[in-house]
Computed example of a mutant assay.
Amino acid sequence: MSVLSPRIKPSGPVANSLTSGQLPRFVELYVLLGAAIVTGLVMLLVGFSLVGWLCLTAVIYLVALAILSSVVENRRKATDRVIRGLVTVAFLLALIPLVSTLATVIVQGAGEISWSFITSVGAATFDPNTLTVTQTPGALQAIVGTLIITGIASLISIPIGLFTSIYLVEYAQPKQWLARTVTFLVDVMTGIPSIVAGLFAFSLFSIIVGPKAFSGFSASVALSVLMIPTVVRACEEMLRLVPGDLREASLALGVSKFSTIVKVVLPTAIAGLITGIMLAVARIIGETAPIFLAASFTDNFNANPFDGPMQTLPVLAYTGYAFPGKDIAASNASAWGAALLLVLLVVILNLIARVIARIFAPKGMR
């Protein structure tokens, strides 16, 4: 009869197999701070440069993280940490121009934004007694023109783009010649330069109306040429994400194809559709070249899109620098104010679109 020998317990501390061979939780942050400090000291010796400091910090961070992870952990984990570090660095580099642009626009335009600037029409008045020209800053005509031109372009583009995407996803066969032709034309239109769209609208209305046929409607037509392919592509991708089981279940219950699209497909994809449409609106609302060619610009208030030039916020920002008045500083300030108003307008439109998408989305997706 054998006697079982008692298990001998290790005398030293027991290592946890789940946490052994792992770096601390916030090691990436520690390595990044160390790389930034070391790079800063080096840059102080050779001459400081912000771009050089950021690039050298990223390189030292990735190299140090790879070496540290290879020593403590293993090669697989080291590769994973380096790839995640590259993704993080790429994300931070992508944020730099965005944050820099927003910061510049806010700093330069915040001092110009006021209630009088928003509700006043910019004009230059001449005083015959003192022989001086006083420039009154104002963006009311530009705000109204932007809303009118963008609204008309949206009314033209959204139905055409949405119906085209529904045709391509729900009705067209993959190898049908019409579907391939529409897809090819949409791809070609996506790459059209904005100034070409402006020249097209100006030439078209010059033939119909006559020379110098500047109008807000002409600018809307130019913007619709740019907006339609974006709406088609965005809505097409969102409709393709709707599961086919929902369509099959609806058709199996005897619901018609049209009712399935209206009551099942579109409500399911409503959030993505609105997001894609807002991306298209944001793409055209800041266009300058086509509006400058098709609608020109004016300091007078004009709310009639079918008669005479119209002013918009991007054109106001451009002309404030390209064609300043006698008071150059005031013109430049108005340009920065118009740029900030344009950013705020895009933010407000996106918030409204989010609210609408949340309201009309299916209950399970809210």
Rank of each mutant, 00 (worst) to 15 (best):
V3W: 11
S5G: 09
P6E: 11
P6H: 07
S11T: 10
G12W: 09
S17E: 09
G21F: 07
R25A: 13
Y30G: 14
Y30L: 13
L32N: 01
G34L: 12
G34E: 09
I37T: 15
L41T: 07
V46H: 09
V46G: 07
F48S: 12
F48Q: 12
L50G: 13
L54H: 13
C55Y: 08
V59P: 08
A66G: 14
N74V: 02
T79S: 13
D80T: 13
D80A: 14
I83Q: 12
G85Y: 08
L86R: 07
V87G: 04
A90N: 10
F91H: 05
F91L: 09
L92G: 07
A94L: 14
L95C: 15
P97V: 11
L98K: 13
I106E: 05
A110N: 14
A110D: 08
A110G: 15
G111P: 07
E112W: 00
S116M: 06
T119D: 11
T119K: 10
T132L: 12
T134C: 03
L140W: 11
Q141D: 06
G151I: 06
A153I: 05
L155N: 03
L155T: 05
S157W: 00
P159Q: 10
G161T: 10
L162S: 10
F163S: 12
E170Y: 04
Y171R: 13
A172D: 08
A172H: 06
K175G: 05
V182P: 00
T183Y: 03
V186R: 00
G191E: 10
A197L: 08
L199I: 15
F202W: 10
I208D: 07
V209N: 14
G216R: 01
G216S: 07
S220A: 14
A222Y: 02
P229C: 03
T230Q: 14
V231A: 07
V231N: 03
C235V: 15
R240G: 01
R240H: 10
V242S: 12
D245E: 15
K257H: 11
A271T: 15
I274L: 15
L279E: 01
G286L: 05
T288P: 03
T288Q: 06
L293D: 00
A295M: 06
N300L: 12
N302P: 06
T312H: 06
A317V: 03
A317R: 02
T319W: 03
T319F: 04
K326V: 04
I328D: 03
A329R: 08
A339W: 02
L341S: 07
L342R: 00
L342T: 01
L344R: 01
V347F: 15
V347K: 06
L351Y: 10
R358C: 00
M365I: 12
M365K: 14
